[in-house]
Design a protein around this nucleic acid. Sequence first.
DNA 1: ACCTGAACACCGTTCAAGT
DNA 2: ACCTGAACACCGTTCAAGT
Lengths: 231, 231
Amino acid sequence: MTAKREPISRRERPAKPALTRRGIVDAAVRVMRSEGLEKVTMRRLAQELDTGPASLYVYVANTAELHAAVLDALLGEVELPADEPGADWRDQLVAVLTSYAHLLFEHPQLARSALVARPSGENYLNLVERLLLLLSRSGTPQAQVAWGVDNLLQYATATAAEHGTQERDPMSRDDWDALARAVYGADEAVHPMIKAHLPDLLSGTESGRLAWGFDVVINGIIHTPVPGAEG
Amino acid sequence: MTAKREPISRRERPAKPALTRRGIVDAAVRVMRSEGLEKVTMRRLAQELDTGPASLYVYVANTAELHAAVLDALLGEVELPADEPGADWRDQLVAVLTSYAHLLFEHPQLARSALVARPSGENYLNLVERLLLLLSRSGTPQAQVAWGVDNLLQYATATAAEHGTQERDPMSRDDWDALARAVYGADEAVHPMIKAHLPDLLSGTESGRLAWGFDVVINGIIHTPVPGAEG
DNA sequence: ACCTGAACACCGTTCAAGT
DNA sequence: ACCTGAACACCGTTCAAGT
């Protein structure tokens, strides 16, 4: 049954491809894609890598750091098409942000983790670099651009965390229904403004609202000087 | 040792004050205030109420719903001072939003749960009602106001979820340090824009940025017509 | 230095059985 | 209808011991 010490015979199954941080993160991405981030646990991953959970702590500080590493890896998929200085900066900016948002819409749990443990990897820097470049083209003062990029990313991340892929997520549906009922059932005497804004309060498609939101933040950045700086 | 059946004797300890949804939520708020939301678990609460975890499921669907109920209860503490039609709508609007944000800054985990399971209770409706009223005073078209209130609340909630009370939260500090290192260590050749925006990228106080962010969203709402509607 | 087994201290949720 | 004990199926993390 047991080969005392198997000879090098390269044709055998890879079996245990030596634990590395890289290998752990790769396995984590694989598990997330097939079963969702909630299954990316130390124990599940250890099982996947044919070892015990304790072994992972040599390469990864804790579960939060592991999830952050997964996000960092995924950020490499944000589309940063070749910059065309002639093209409209606003269109290009919205395109990049939309690509980022779409990525997180498919993994809302990752968006939630991004709000808590902010990324700082290479892919994230590339994304920030591009956003700074495009927003700068608007002619907005530097300080506003620097602060504004943060708000743009936060808006995309938070929206993904909120509305992300509700297919088969019964909870979100329930919440939405509860809000709709509360809002339509509001008492005219107590909540006249809610009544007055009623169809609009819940109107619009997800992508329509997302696009509007990007415009809101962009226009806001452009029109709002940073306190200490010159206009 | 055991009294077979204790007589009515009202002077004894309250012992088991009959399970109710209200009692459960009250206990949850109590536990959150003293030990944080992460301790608000079915098991911990059952212990607090001197029963088994299974008993709670008669009144509460699951842990997420319980956390949502806690948020709803806390929302009653948002300050909605008497509306003064003479006062500047913008100042009043920012004051209400700041009060809401401060509440969540003290309970960042609650802010995170708010992003996922959106509230729809009475206190939430009161908050939305007031925001609609104040934002309407700007003269902005109804549809923009209706959509905009959502963005204002989302911005406050997301910011609280991100930066909320890092005192004693070693994780957040680490993240910030990592970002600072990444940004200051960026290669001039690869990330020139990051270098160019460097002091600004990480400058400002928490409350300074929050206030600026509110202005950004407000200005954005005012300047951004909703797609289908008349300007 | 790296890896491990085993343990500690928890979780959410369900279900059959009781009152 | 409400409440419960007990169980099922998991978690994260640590630590002493091994190689």
